[in-house]
Design a protein around this nucleic acid. Sequence first.
DNA 1: CAGGATCCTACTGGATACTG
DNA 2: CAGTATCCAGTAGGATCCTG
Lengths: 126, 126
Amino acid sequence: MVTKQFTGSPDEADLRRADSLAREIFADVANKWALLIIEALGERTLRFSELLGEVEGISHKMLTQNLRMLERNGLAHRKVHPTVPPRVEYSLTEPGLALRRTVDTMCDWTHRYLGHIEASRSRFDA
Amino acid sequence: MVTKQFTGSPDEADLRRADSLAREIFADVANKWALLIIEALGERTLRFSELLGEVEGISHKMLTQNLRMLERNGLAHRKVHPTVPPRVEYSLTEPGLALRRTVDTMCDWTHRYLGHIEASRSRFDA
DNA sequence: CAGGATCCTACTGGATACTG
DNA sequence: CAGTATCCAGTAGGATCCTG
């Protein structure tokens, strides 16, 4: 489980707070776009427009929204070059890189079980 | 990236198909409820009603929906006991267990960086 | 080029009631 | 108890227009 149960311990309130925070973070991060962005940024630093092309199917709006969220949580770093036209580069922070490693294993998993899953689907759909 | 680019190879069509399948599976699995259910089932086999209680905040409908999806993809196994009242038990299959390991590391990640993230949020919100 | 704001649609997901 | 069906509200998310 994401959350562990603490009952009756001294600073129970603090622990419950950490608990709900953990759930919030998990909900932030456990979504398709966020994970795909993290995966893309793991390769190298990317500009906004590059990400838009790199993350298959994402819209302008969703990209901005998720980048803000990642920045707020300290997973991505936003570097603005004060040039004209503006140039903004996104990269992963240490926590972001750590998360990226687990996303990697998720991608590996996907490819490893592709066959199993496709077979299971055919069986189920029958 | 989830998807790798193959261009000009012999059976390019097959690879593109596998590609889009991979993205589909990733989208199925990379969602809050699916991951939380997998995490819960990792502990032990659970009945429908037990899952409902175990997965914090999930609704009846979302649970059914996600369980069907997990079953279809061959990640969860559904065992019906022909008793009355009915008793249905869900457990993880081998692929499901494998995925569960990566979900575990994601949960660990969440708890490890809780402090970093909370601090980053305060900074950002100011 | 990066990205905010707005509008609008479509789907997600909750509550509730019904069946085996 | 497990699961389906229906209805409905909220929101995710696309398209578009506008600024520095």
